[in-house]
Computed example of a mutant assay.
Amino acid sequence: MLDWIKTVIQSIGYPGIAFLMIVENIFPPIPSEIIMPFAGFVTEQGELNFYGVVAAGTFGSVVGTLPFYYLGHKIGEDRLKRWADKHGKWLMLSSSDIERAQGWFDRHDAAAVFFCRLIPGIRTLISVPAGIKKMNLGYFLILSVSGTLIWVGLLTYLGSILGQNYDKVSEYLDPVSYAVFGFIILSYIIHIIRHK
């Protein structure tokens, strides 16, 4: 997986980073924790500009959240819960998950969008309750961009300070990323079996 991420970033540059971050939001096994540090490392090689990398990563990440925002906005809470109860097992999503997310969003509102953009695993999902509550799209984007900018900037900076040691780190990251991907697939299979 790491080799594929490297190839996309090195051959396509900024659009490749944006593409990977869009995909990362929709298909979480491709983590931003691998994409952005490598992109930061590439800035140290002089191939890409640090600020351009952060801008591309932020843009891609925010664009990747919009389908989830519109899903919540267009479908609404009741229909989404009914759908989750009927088909959500395939996405490991239930109506009670939606209720919990909605309750958390109701208590924290704008802060939920900002801070959740900094937390792996729920960075994208917070978009659904924001859409359900019909949060103003402009306000949602400002909060999403602000939180994402901090997260992407931090990961890019960490990759840039790794400098020449990134190749050594990647020797460990690649097996770990495959292990994480395998764990996610295994968890998904177990979840499906249990629901059948």
Rank of each mutant, 00 (worst) to 15 (best):
V23F: 09
V23G: 01
V23S: 04
E24M: 06
N25Q: 13
P28F: 12
I30D: 04
P31C: 12
P31G: 10
S32M: 01
E33P: 07
I35G: 00
M36C: 12
F38Q: 01
T43W: 05
Q45L: 14
Q45F: 10
G46P: 10
E47D: 11
L48K: 06
T58M: 09
G60Q: 01
G64S: 05
P67F: 11
Y70P: 03
G72H: 02
K74G: 14
I75Q: 09
E77T: 10
L80C: 09
L80N: 01
K81P: 00
A84N: 06
D85N: 14
D85F: 07
H87G: 04
G88V: 11
W90R: 14
L91A: 15
L93P: 00
L93C: 09
E99K: 13
A101Q: 00
A101N: 04
Q102C: 14
G103W: 08
F105P: 00
D106C: 09
A110T: 13
A111W: 13
A112L: 08
A112D: 02
F114M: 09
R117F: 01
L118V: 05
I119C: 07
G121H: 07
I122E: 08
L125S: 09
I126D: 00
V128M: 08
G131W: 03
G131D: 06
N136P: 09
N136C: 12
S144Y: 02
V145Q: 05
I150K: 10
W151V: 02
G153C: 08
L154G: 11
Y157H: 08
L158R: 03
